[in-house]
Design a protein around this nucleic acid. Structure first.
Length: 259
DNA sequence: AATAGAGGCAACCGCGGACAG
DNA sequence: ACTGTCCGCGGTTGCCTCTAT
């Protein structure tokens, strides 16, 4: 219905962010916090759309981000959560502190998917590949039926399957029936019930950071290094490059309070 | 050393939900 | 109840790097 673009397309820059743009964005958010992304580019002096700023911040500039590949425990958790939730990357990411949905999605598509296939597990259904051929046939026939009968679209194709809440095909279900079904499942499954609370999983393994010079560095998931020293190691630029010595004592605390 | 192809990842696009007026 | 706006999410794209030839 003629929705306005999120930003003025004219004069809006696209593509990779420069260090100068990053600097402006970090400076603005550390000073003003996260609010009204639409206004951020103007106020921060950036020729970007608000969406782009939000994405850059959440996926790359946020000081609480971990860098580097997912470790084995994280990977296992992602697989486990994906089996239950499907492609709800943001939900999955919310249980992995310091990881973004984009990062997990990319890691899934480039690494985990292949691993599972190699292991003979279908990455979509999480069932052995032999069974998958059959279930895919069933799925396709259900899909065909659905096309013929749009009015029945509210009923998820996997409604009768034990994979009910696990199937990605079910992820967009918004019917009351579906939510009731979900609630039931969440109550029974501690992991899933945890997903629908706000608190992140308290993982009992240390976070491991690839450090540019000294290999892996351990980092407690629940703790927040106020010095943000890791940022200097893990970002492809340094805070000092931006002249953000203030980052150490101000930025992170301010952001946490807002969250 | 040069080049083509594959892989990985950052960023963009479009849709839908939430919410305010 | 309706409309417009904003934000967040998931899918996709395109560029850069790595690897094989």
């Amino acid at each position: 219905m003629g929705r306005q673009p999120c930003c003025d397309k004219l004069g809006v820059k696209k593509g990779p962010w420069t260090a100068e743009e990053d600097k402006k964005l970090i400076n603005f958010i550390l000073t003003n916090g996260q609010c009204c992304w639409r206004a951020v580019p103007k106020l921060a002096g950036l020729r970007r759309c608000g969406k782009s700023c939000r994405l850059r911040w959440t996926n790359y500039l946020r000081p609480d981000l971990k860098r580097g590949l997912l470790n084995q425990a994280e990977e296992q958790l992602v697989i486990d959560l994906h089996a239950r939730l499907g492609n709800r990357w943001s939900k999955i990411a919310s249980k992995l502190p310091g990881r973004t949905d984009n990062e997990i999605k990319n890691h899934w598509n480039t690494h985990i998917k292949k691993k599972l296939i190699k292991m003979g597990i279908d990455p979509v259904t999480h069932e052995p590949l032999n069974n998958v051929e059959k279930s895919q046939q069933n799925y396709q026939s259900v899909q065909t039926e659905e096309k013929h009968s749009q009015s029945e679209a509210a009923d998820a194709p996997f409604a009768s399957s034990k994979e009910t809440a696990c199937s990605p095909a079910d992820q967009n279900s918004s019917s009351d029936e579906a939510s009731a079904r979900d609630n039931n499942l969440y109550e029974k499954d501690p992991l899933i019930s945890c997903l629908f609370r706000d608190d992140p999983l308290q993982l009992d393994f240390p976070w491991e950071f690839p450090s540019s010079e000294e290999g892996l560095t351990t980092f407690s998931a629940s703790s927040w290094d106020p010095s943000c020293q890791w940022l200097l190691d893990c970002q492809d630029f340094g805070v000092h490059d931006f002249g953000f010595e203030c980052f150490n004592d101000f930025g992170v605390g301010a952001n946490r309070e807002r969250e």
